[in-house]
Amino acid sequence: MIPVEHILLLSAALFTIGVLGVMLRRNVIVIFMSIELMLNAVNLSFVTFSRGMDSMTGVIFIFFIIVVAAAEAVVGLSIILSIFRTRKTLNIDEFNILKW
């Protein structure tokens, strides 16, 4: 049996790398991928806790999380597509039209 702490440590590391990606990268699609990475880290800890506690609720939650992630990816990418049409770039620093 894999120790629960080691899987949670892996999940924490993946989540941290995702946070770093959101803060460091400037390409908006790569930022989006980092968000997916964070969602996956959370999924991993859901499965771990669900197995460790002999419960199925975590696995059901993952089903819902993956659906939400798919919806988020679809809507987010179409927003990026329509922003790209007007700004001609994917650099997040150029998307400052809502800022004053």
Binding site: V67, A70, A71, V74, V75, S78, R85, T86
Partner: peptide, 17 residues
């Protein structure tokens, strides 16, 4: 939610700014 996301994606990506 999934249905709303599909419709939303089509509407956002098709609109011309």
């Amino acid at each position: 939610l999934l249905l709303v996301a599909v419709i939303g994606a089509v509407v956002i990506a098709k609109r011309r700014f």
